[in-house]
Simulated assay, not measured.
Amino acid sequence: MSRAFVKEDGPDNAPLPDLPISPYPNYVTPRGFAQLQARLAEAQTRLAGLRARMDRLDRLPEAAAERDIRYVEARLKSALLMTSEGRGCEEVVFGHRVSVVDEGGAKTAYTIVGEDEADAATGHIAPQSPLARALLGTQPGDVVAWRRPAGVVELEVLAIAWP
Rank of each mutant, 00 (worst) to 15 (best):
L155F: 13
E90V: 06
Q37T: 09
P20E: 12
R70C: 14
H124P: 01
A109T: 11
V6T: 12
R70M: 09
A161F: 04
G88Y: 02
G104I: 14
P25H: 12
S78V: 03
K107S: 10
Y71D: 06
P23C: 03
L155E: 06
L16S: 14
N13F: 14
A63D: 06
G105V: 07
G104P: 09
G49W: 01
E42Y: 09
K107N: 05
L131F: 08
P61W: 09
E62T: 06
R51W: 07
A52E: 12
A48L: 12
I69V: 10
A48E: 13
L155N: 09
A150H: 11
P25V: 03
P15I: 15
D116P: 08
D102L: 04
P23R: 07
S84A: 10
V157A: 07
R133N: 12
A43I: 11
G114E: 03
V143Q: 00
L80A: 08
E154F: 02
G88R: 03
T29R: 01
L76V: 05
L135E: 03
R148S: 12
E117D: 09
A43V: 09
P15F: 15
I160G: 02
K7Y: 12
G32C: 01
A106I: 03
L60S: 12
G114T: 04
A126C: 13
G141F: 11
A120M: 03
G123H: 01
T83K: 05
F5S: 12
Q35Y: 04
A109S: 14
V144L: 01
A120E: 05
G141Y: 13
S129K: 06
R67D: 05
A41C: 10
P17C: 05
V144R: 00
E66P: 15
A145K: 01
M54S: 14
A118L: 09
R53E: 14
A63M: 14
K107I: 03
F5W: 11
R97T: 03
T122C: 04
A34T: 04
P11A: 08
Q128G: 14
R147F: 04
L57E: 07
A159H: 03
Y27V: 00
F33M: 10
H96D: 03
P15S: 15
P149K: 15
K77S: 09
A65K: 00
V152M: 11
A118W: 11
M54D: 15
K77P: 00
G104V: 13
R67K: 07
I69T: 07
P17S: 07
V157Y: 01
R59T: 13
L47H: 08
L16K: 15
G105T: 05
D119N: 08
A150D: 10
R87K: 08
S2C: 02
L136P: 08
L76H: 04
P17M: 08
P149Q: 15
M54L: 12
L57Y: 00
A126W: 00
R39T: 04
P11G: 00
